[in-house]
C-alpha cells in the first residue's frame, strides 16, 4: 500500500498586517499558509487534514493545471474551493480551537483535480488570541483517505455478508451437526469463562501488591 499524505512543502504562515508589525497595537485577523506541490506531480485532492490552533474561519484556494494550460505558465488559475468554513463556532471561546479537522473533496465548491498549489486563508476575528495557525497539515490524494489507514481493521468486518445456507442438498447429517454444535458450545462456554476472569481484573502481580512509593514518571 502506498504511504498516506502527498509530498508537499508547507510554508510558514504569513500574517496580513496593516501598518508596522511591531508597533501597531491591532492584531492581524488574517493569515495565509501556502502549500507548494512538486511541479511534476499535480495532485487530485481527496482530503485535507489538520489540527486547528485558534483559527476561526478557513478559506481554501487551489491552483489547478488545465490540459489547455500546458506550456503557459502564467495562465494557471486560482479558484476558491472552500469559503469561510467555520472551525470555531464562537471565536472568543475555546470550542474547536485545538480540534482535528478533515475537509473532504465533496465539501469543495469546485473540483480539485490536477492541483499544483494550495493556499489556505485563515481568519480570526477575535482579538483575544495571541496567535492563530494550523498545525500538522496534510494533503491526501484521491483514493487514499487518511481514514483508510487509521481505521481499525475490524471496522471493515462490521457487517459480514452472511451466506445463506444451501438447504437444497437435503438435511445435513444430525450426528455431524450435533458434534459441531457441541464443539461450538464448549467454545462459547470457554469464551464466557475467560470473559468473567477478565472482568474480575487482578491488580496484583503474581499475588503481590506491596508498594512503597508512587512513581513520578
Amino acid at each position: 500500500m502506498a504511504p498516506g499524505p502527498a509530498p508537499c512543502t508547507v510554508r510558514s504562515p504569513v500574517v496580513l498586517q496593516v501598518g508596522d508589525v511591531k508597533t501597531d497595537l491591532a492584531r492581524p485577523g488574517v493569515a495565509i499558509i501556502d502549500v507548494v506541490l512538486p511541479p511534476a506531480q499535480p495532485l487530485d485532492l481527496q482530503e485535507i487534514v489538520f489540527k486547528n490552533s485558534y483559527t476561526a474561519f478557513l478559506t481554501v484556494r487551489v491552483q489547478r493545471r488545465r490540459p489547455c494550460d500546458v506550456g503557459r505558465e502564467g495562465a494557471r488559475k486560482w479558484v476558491t474551493c472552500l469559503w469561510n468554513h467555520c472551525l470555531m463556532p464562537s471565536p472568543h471561546t475555546e470550542t474547536g480551537s485545538q480540534d482535528y479537522f478533515s475537509l473532504f473533496r465533496h465539501q469543495m465548491l469546485c473540483d480539485v483535480d490536477q492541483v499544483t498549489a494550495v493556499r489556505l486563508i485563515l481568519r480570526q476575528p477575535s482579538p483575544v488570541w495571541l496567535n492563530f495557525t494550523l498545525e500538522e497539515l496534510r494533503l491526501y490524494p484521491k483514493d487514499q483517505q487518511s481514514l483508510q489507514t487509521d481505521f481499525p481493521t475490524w471496522l471493515s468486518h462490521l457487517a459480514p455478508q452472511q451466506q445463506p445456507e444451501n438447504l437444497h442438498g437435503g438435511i445435513p447429517d444430525p450426528e455431524k451437526v450435533s458434534t459441531e454444535v457441541q464443539q461450538l458450545w464448549v467454545l462459547t462456554e470457554m469464551i464466557h469463562a475467560n470473559q468473567t476472569a477478565a472482568r474480575i481484573g487482578r491488580f496484583d502481580v503474581d499475588g503481590c501488591y506491596d508498594i512503597n512509593l508512587l512513581s513520578y514518571t
Partner: peptide, 8 residues
C-alpha cells in the same frame, strides 16, 4: 491519569 507505581 491514574498514579503509577512498582511492586516493592
Amino acid at each position: 491519569t491514574p498514579p503509577k507505581s512498582y511492586i516493592r
